[in-house]
Simulated assay, not measured.
Amino acid sequence: MISSKIIRYVHTNNVLWQASNKSLLGKLRKRTGYTFSNCKKALELHQNDLDKAEIWLKEQAQALGWSKAEKLQGRSTTQGLIAVIVDKCHGALVEINCETDFVARNKQFHGLADTIATAVFQHALTLPNDKAISKIILDAEALKTILAHDGKTIADHSALTIGTVGENIGVRRALCMSVSPDVKLAGCTHPAPINPVPASFGRYGSLVAYRTAQHNEQLGMQLCQHIIGMNPTKIGDPNVDQPIKSVDDESVMIYQEFLLDPSLTVQQLLIDSQAEILDFARFEMGELSEEKEQLKAAETCG
């Protein structure tokens, strides 16, 4: 009888222990996205301490990521995302690249893009807004050293994701913009996401700084959509610039047909809205890569 009770006790505790371990494994896999075997090893090494196991996994993944980053360096990254974050006075526009469209849709890559865009946006908050517009462009080297919310650099976060997804990843460029309180700032991406958190992702992105005497919450977004769709090269000055004959080839924004209402030019829209565009920026995913390839082709032909 006693022996039977001992056996039942041991069996019950073993079942409870296995159930507890499975629960911890499930939580750790959900938190990190790493494999069953790696999560099991992390828990075993840290006596089932979930937080310590998660930290160890990320350290291992980052170390592996740096190793993979060295091996994959130079591999073409023509896919990816444009990320935009904007508030009333500050905005950030970032291009994050990967090798394939499959990874560009990956949850881990989206998490990286959000982390990077937020870090660049926090950097934008350090820009002075004592003049109408302050703007800086950051290249790939400058972006590597910017710190994210956890104190790690953008380069560290990129390496961690490289270790997870197994593809080369690059943060090609970013633009930060700050405006004075009397200037409005808007931003958007295309395709527009359903739930931006907090960054908006797409293959195209734009920022626009403008003034208006009217209360029109939609104007900034509409101008951003026009900039993405029509790709103007500059705002234009009616005292200096003249419209060209072919409307379809017009690159000066004020003389372009307004994307959302072709019966209007952007100039007429601004007059009707008592508005003035002060500055804008537009990123298209991969456009710099295409330019480099064209230059290489031209050099080869030459």
Rank of each mutant, 00 (worst) to 15 (best):
Y9K: 10
N14E: 09
V15E: 05
F36V: 15
N38C: 05
K40E: 14
K40R: 10
D49P: 11
A63H: 02
W66N: 12
S67V: 05
T77E: 01
Q79K: 05
V86L: 02
A92E: 00
E95Q: 09
V103F: 12
A113H: 11
D114T: 14
A117W: 03
A119R: 11
T126F: 06
T126G: 10
S134N: 15
I137Y: 05
E141D: 10
G151Q: 06
A155I: 01
S158M: 10
I162Q: 09
V165S: 11
I169L: 14
A186K: 08
C188P: 02
P191I: 07
P191G: 02
P193M: 12
I194Y: 02
A199K: 05
Y204E: 09
L207F: 09
A209V: 12
Y210N: 03
Q214E: 09
E217A: 13
Q218Y: 01
L219H: 07
Q225Y: 04
Q225F: 04
I228C: 11
G229L: 15
N231E: 08
D237Y: 02
D241Q: 02
Q242K: 12
P243I: 06
K245F: 08
S246F: 05
E250D: 01
V252S: 01
M253K: 13
Y255W: 03
E257L: 12
L259C: 04
L260V: 05
S263Y: 01
Q268M: 10
I271A: 12
Q274T: 10
L278C: 09
E284F: 03
E290T: 04
K292L: 04
K296H: 08
E299T: 00
